[in-house]
Computed example of a mutant assay.
Amino acid sequence: MTLAEQTQAHAARLVRLTADTFEDHVVGLAEVLTACVLDGASVSFVDPFSPTDALRFWRGKVLPGVVAGDVDLIVALVGDEVAGTVQLAADTPANQPQRADVRKLLVHPKHRRKGIARSLMLEAEACAAARSRSLLTLDTRTGDAGEQLYLDLGYQVIGHIPAYALDPRKQRFEGCTLMYKQLAQLPG
């Protein structure tokens, strides 16, 4: 990361949302998700996608995990504006207590190339360590800029699945890259 990127990333303040602070930022989360989908991000949604759809996702799919304590929802704030977000989901099966999933790394298009995604990922890793989760898994669109970020952060490619998901504009199927990172050596 260049010095300019580090300076800009420091302008973003990282906050872990709780059930009590979620509503304070849900509109900003919806704006980020909507902007990313409309910009072509492959994050499970297709166009047309509205702020109402985004609010439904955050309140219906993410908030229950936050309330249950199974999901760390991290946001990057620039001033009072949500510039980006990532989730660390620790709601894994009983036989996988060492693992967590990284979900929905999103940075608003106007805040990209400022080190925010990297900062969010490092914070997700810190949350994993605090939960004693030493193995992180994620998936990303094959060839996407996020794939290179994850490689730069030390994630390893497990494999590629062709034609995994429909692109956001419903024009073609795109491949998916599965990745992992081991934060600490496990016994056995």
Rank of each mutant, 00 (worst) to 15 (best):
E81T: 15
R113D: 15
E5S: 15
P97R: 08
R113E: 14
A117S: 13
L73H: 11
E125G: 00
Q156G: 01
H111I: 09
W58T: 00
V26P: 04
Y155Q: 04
V27H: 15
Q171T: 15
S50Q: 01
K61W: 05
L122E: 12
K104G: 00
E31H: 13
I158M: 14
P97L: 08
D80Q: 11
Q185M: 15
R113V: 10
L178S: 09
K110T: 14
T142C: 11
V107T: 12
L178T: 11
D144P: 13
H10Y: 10
S132N: 13
V66H: 01
A124R: 05
G40Y: 00
F173K: 15
G79E: 07
A4F: 05
E23P: 02
V32Y: 06
A76L: 01
I116P: 00
H108R: 06
P64I: 02
A94I: 14
R56Y: 09
R56W: 08
L138G: 06
G79I: 06
T34G: 05
V67G: 00
S134H: 14
D24R: 14
I161A: 11
A54I: 00
H108D: 10
H160S: 11
D20T: 08
A130E: 08
V37Q: 07
G159F: 04
V67A: 05
V157M: 12
V32I: 09
L29F: 07
Y155V: 06
Q185P: 08
G60D: 08
V71H: 05
I116F: 12
A76N: 01
P64G: 03
L105F: 10
V102F: 01
Q185G: 15
R56S: 15
R141D: 06
I74V: 15
A145T: 10
S44R: 01
A83M: 07
D70P: 00
K170P: 04
D39M: 02
P162N: 11
K104E: 07
C127D: 07
R59S: 09
P162W: 09
D167V: 05
F22Y: 07
L3Y: 13
E174Q: 12
S119R: 12
H25V: 00
H111K: 10
D80F: 01
G154F: 09
Y164I: 01
R59H: 14
V86G: 03
R172V: 02
G146T: 05
G143Y: 10
L106G: 06
S44V: 02
F22E: 02
P64V: 06
R13V: 13
V107Q: 07
R16N: 07
D139H: 10
V62W: 00
I116L: 03
G40K: 03
A35P: 07
P109S: 03
V27N: 15
L136K: 05
T142F: 08
D72P: 00
L186D: 04
G84H: 01
R113I: 08
K181R: 10
D101Y: 12
L33R: 09
V67F: 02
L166D: 00
A94Y: 12
R118S: 13
L38I: 06
F45T: 04
Y164G: 02
R99C: 10
D101C: 04
I116D: 00
G60A: 08
A128N: 03
D47Q: 15
T18M: 06
A4K: 06
E123N: 08
E5V: 07
